[in-house]
């Protein structure tokens, strides 16, 4: 598995993700050090709602050397806090535009929406995201 998270040059693709407490069930999904099972380069920070995430934190992740960063909220329409995931999706759109002007590839930021029972779909989406990042090359660091 580990080799799959490396770029062609062999540098690991580090990813920092934010996962809403109410979205995908996190039991059995995370290693003790908060990385994803089977994807030791993907760190997940659990948050009370996807809308809690500051766009600045996503920027910080990229600036600190992550190749990509994502936020996962509940299915659109089912946010426990009514609007958190819509708001976050908007904020990510704006951040992408801002980053594009600074020559950072907007594809390094992803937004997912998966519910309690969608563990596998979530893992697949993260893997696909990592694969795209591998093509883009490792992070800035």
């Amino acid at each position: 598995m580990a080799t799959k998270t490396e770029t062609a040059q062999g540098t690991p693709v580090r990813v920092v993700g934010f996962l809403c407490d109410w979205a995908v069930r996190s039991e059995g999904l995370l290693n003790p050090d908060d990385t994803l099972v089977g994807m030791p380069h993907v760190t997940v920070i659990r948050v009370p709602c996807s809308g809690f995430v500051k766009p600045g934190w996503l920027e910080l992740a990229l600036r600190s050397g992550a190749a990509g960063t994502f936020v996962c909220g509940c299915p659109m329409g089912d946010c426990l806090n009514r609007e958190g995931n819509w708001i976050m999706e908007d904020r990510i759109d704006q951040l992408r535009k801002r980053l594009a002007r600074q020559k950072v590839d907007p594809d390094r930021i992803a937004f997912f929406a998966y519910g309690l029972h969608d563990q596998q779909a979530f893992l697949d989406a993260v893997q696909a995201f990592v694969d795209r990042l591998r093509a883009l090359g490792g992070g800035k660091a």
Binding site: V16, T43, I45, L60, A61, S64, A66
Partner: peptide, 16 residues
């Protein structure tokens, strides 16, 4: 922020 930085910087050992 600390956790983001820890996650973004590869622990040297884990890197190939």
């Amino acid at each position: 922020q600390q956790r983001i930085q820890r996650g973004a910087q590869a622990p040297a050992a884990a890197a190939t």
